[in-house]
């Protein structure tokens, strides 16, 4: 049984990582095909010289940062409000967020595109940075609500009252006490938003208009042509970035747990 567990776990991990590691391996291949022609770093050099990719990267980061910040504020406020509703209204509001989460990305994408096109013709604007940002805030916010709501529910309400009792007005009590209680939920909501926004292709694809580029869109056009090994280099870099991010989060979590004990 023990042996089976180990072998099975190893096989699953192999299945998950072999494709990624293959890409990373070929990112060092001095040839355009999957035949090994010797070690090189030139694809990495090419990647950094590609101004389009670099600007797409900035766009992606900017959108992800703005969308997740905005979503965190909007979602935290929403969670506080929703928590004070009762009965059916509360359930309805909670489910409103779930609709957004459960709607297939492609439907959200085309629906937003439909609206932005209509608004665009009415108000004379073209889809681009702003519409992508609005779309990203829309699909990120429910995740923040989902993360913050349980924190509020489990928060000792008397802590807020204690702050009022000690001379805080409502805003001070929120800023000095409540926000600290909600912080872990807000942080994980922010992180989720950030990664979902970074990773999103489908919704960006439909709401970006004709010229706005993000990394996903860039990868799409590159993979469509299936030629440039620059993609391999990009994959390797993104993998390392994800790895570092995960390690940072894990360390942070561990520290938090330690502080709790």
């Amino acid at each position: 049984m023990k042996k089976f567990s180990k072998i099975y776990t190893a096989l699953i991990i192999l299945f998950m990582y072999v494709p990624i590691l293959t890409l990373i391996l070929f990112s060092f291949n001095d040839g355009k095909t999957t035949v090994w022609k010797g070690f090189t770093l030139r694809w990495y050099a090419d990647l950094f010289k590609d101004s389009q990719i670099i600007s797409s990267l900035w766009n992606t980061l900017l959108i992800a940062l703005l969308a997740s910040l905005f979503a965190t504020v909007l979602g935290t406020m929403a969670a506080i409000g929703i928590n004070n509703f009762k009965g059916k209204k509360k359930i309805l509001l909670q489910n409103a967020g779930n609709i957004e989460i459960l709607t297939p990305d492609i439907v959200t994408g085309v629906a937003l595109m439909l609206m932005f096109t209509l608004l665009g013709t009415a108000l004379h604007f073209k889809m681009g940075f702003i519409t992508v940002l609005l779309a990203h805030i829309t699909f990120c916010t429910p995740y923040v609500v989902l993360n913050v709501l349980p924190r509020i529910r489990h928060m000792d309400y008397a802590v807020y009252e204690a702050a009022l009792d000690l001379g805080c007005n409502q805003w001070q009590a929120f800023r000095k006490v409540v926000i600290h209680e909600l912080m872990p939920g807000m942080f994980s909501g922010f992180l989720m938003s950030f990664t979902f926004s970074m990773d999103d292709f489908v919704i960006t694809y439909f709401t970006r208009g004709s010229s706005f580029q993000t990394l996903s869109i860039q990868i799409y056009s590159m993979t469509h042509q299936r030629i440039s090994p620059k993609i391999n280099a990009l994959s390797a870099l993104m993998f390392v970035a994800v790895l570092i991010l995960m390690i940072i989060i894990n360390i942070k979590d561990k520290n938090q747990e330690k502080r709790k004990v």
């Binding site: 000792d156 008397a158 009252e161 702050a163 009792d165 000690l166 600290h180 209680e181």
Partner: peptide, 13 residues
């Protein structure tokens, strides 16, 4: 007037 709450409600942070 100040209050001592049932579950103390100290500020954990």
């Amino acid at each position: 007037v100040n209050t001592v709450f049932q579950k103390y409600s100290l500020f954990p942070h």
